[in-house]
Amino acid sequence: MAAFINTYGFLITSMVLAAALGLSLYLPLMAGQLSLASPGFYALGGYIAAVMSTRLFPSTDGTYPLPLVLLEMLVAAVASGVLALIVGLPALRLRGIYLALATIAFVEILRVLSLNLPILGGAVGIFGIPQPFKSQVEYLWIALPLLLLAMFFVYRLENIRMGRAFVAIREDELAADAVGINPTYAKVLAFTLGAILAGVVGAVSAHFLNTWNARQGTFDASVNYLAFVLIGGSRTFVGPVVGGMALTALPELLRAAAGIDGLPSWLALFLREGRLILFGLLIAIGTVFFPQGLITPNLLRRWFGRRRATKSPPLPDKHVTQE
């Protein structure tokens, strides 16, 4: 068990963080807004944590105090939220592919800025970010509660008025507007919530990865997070969590598969060197065969059917007796 944790500690924590990032993209998607801006806020949060921990609170020797990490997460959340409001208010007038492209542009602009601002360390980035923990698996102490909180939050959100407003906008924005939902308010809120989550995850990741540079917030990352949501399933919050975990583990699984004894040497070589080829193909094929994603609300209902069924209110007796 100890050996397993040593080998896969990094992967397990990465999976948990990826699941949270999937959720950050799922939030705007709940309101029907395809935003690929998450990597931008993720990078922002990471830079905030990196700059604060290396410049503002120069490392005393030994471990970095945990409360300061929480403070960085808070600052990252506020900064991401404010930036999301500034970007979201004008950008969310756009729909569908136009919004996706605008958010890609936003991520790219942030990336070029971060490459060129001297305080952010240029192309090399910021390294030697102090560690609050002794090993990478211990980051689960932050990452796991963060993910569980985010999941609980989204789960509750799906059952309250504002969450239903999100879904109404996803289904038909004009109709939602007509029944008195303020679409702009709801869309900007969904976008901002996603941004805050991405920023907080970024702050944790900067410590976790020990180094932070402009490669964290790229188009590739946008693509990955989108794949988390769409492969996992975009109709329930369980989807992005499963998708994020599965797709983060997949390249490692392929790498592990290359190590199996008795494989022909060309196949082992291909699995080792060409595993990203398979990764890409699996995304393409997965999209074709699971257009709803792996986890759908129907599937959840089948698995947890009884619990869900008792939750729907019983029909009022009135209708039955008034024949």
């Binding site: 395809l34 569908g96 592919i97 996706a100 693509v223 989108l226 794949a227 769409l230 492969i231 291909f270 060197e273 060409g274 990203l276 080829i277 398979l278 990764f279 890409g280 193909l281 699996l282 995304i283 393409a284 094929i285 997965g286 999209t287 074709v288 257009p291």
Partner: peptide
């Protein structure tokens, strides 16, 4: 959903780029 074509084409792009690298 047309958005899925976006993802599947991105998957193909990832595969192609890595094929080239291979």
């Amino acid at each position: 959903d047309p958005l899925l074509a976006l993802v599947s084409s991105l998957g193909v792009a990832v595969a192609l780029v890595n094929l080239i690298q291979y």
